[in-house]
Design a protein around this nucleic acid. Sequence first.
DNA 1: TCTGCCATGTAAGTTGTTACATGATTAT
DNA 2: ATAATCATGTAACAACTTACATGGCAGA
Lengths: 179, 179
Amino acid sequence: MSLSQAILASLVRSAQSGYDLAKSFDGSVGFFWEATHQQIYRELNKLEDKGAIAAQTITQEGRPAKKLYSLTDRGLQQLKDWLHQPCELSPTKEELLLKVFAGHLVEPEAIAKEIKRHRQLHAERLTTYRNIEREYFSDLQSCPKEGKFGYLTLLSGIKFETGWVEWCDEALEILSQQP
Amino acid sequence: MSLSQAILASLVRSAQSGYDLAKSFDGSVGFFWEATHQQIYRELNKLEDKGAIAAQTITQEGRPAKKLYSLTDRGLQQLKDWLHQPCELSPTKEELLLKVFAGHLVEPEAIAKEIKRHRQLHAERLTTYRNIEREYFSDLQSCPKEGKFGYLTLLSGIKFETGWVEWCDEALEILSQQP
DNA sequence: TCTGCCATGTAAGTTGTTACATGATTAT
DNA sequence: ATAATCATGTAACAACTTACATGGCAGA
């Protein structure tokens, strides 16, 4: 359900093709709402059927034609309505924690190895976020109102990746005590 | 896919019925892998077909009969194999962040209200986790190896709920600056 | 009497995943 | 040559959600 809202929210900023959206779901919106290109194409068709978005076919030289989607008034209204509705806490699904939970069944090194790998991955994401912060939000005051909201989502990303790295270190520390 | 592992991991600790599992997915495992009773019943059937678990029907007085499921050797081996495989970062889906991202489209109060609600919900979870910590993990040294792994998952819960509460406060602070 | 718990499931619909398919361009 | 990128999709399957269905017992 929220995939449609994620797409609408992306299209508010600029008109985009399915391909563009799939790309931008690798950054920005994608940091807190992931989706594959197949999901996006299917959802775009549905949104177009409902009249929330409209397509403009753009023929290009040396490249396949693309459909540039933009928000209709109806789509914008739908997005605003959704913003006024309360939402639940998002369901948690953390495979790593599931492994840790059952970790006593195997040698401690197996779990430690996996935690180290994840520490690395989270540290990389944190670096990505810090770079975005430096590039786009070094001067928060100068940002328009739109920027402030984007910054808040970035802040949460930084907080959670920092938390993950800390947790991995603590977990490795505790696991290393007495074998 | 991991739902099956979550069920197997639960059954390691004790034999349980579908109903029991649905309950225990409200606590412990459920804190990082949520599932409804419908998902669980279906998955139990699949796992039984594959021979990973075995059922024992228990007739009760004044209550419907229940099927007590327990791990087979095969199921235990399957779980151990899975523990040795690396896993990806879990995909993020945070509806609240999606709302914040598009928050510039509506009055700031609408978003602030929702952030406050979520602050409350996260604070409640944090209290739950702290209570579990006090009840079961006040003396970590006395815990068996199994307990240490459970404690690590609890630690992560505490860290992330603390992070959420902090983020909500920061976000509300930033949103309240200059309207 | 009504709510909630115990205990199990079915059915329909929506999402999400994985694999397949096409075809030109650009970089190595 | 080969791989990767641009750009679009279809199809089959797996997972998840929501609603419906049953029926007895315990407590307010």
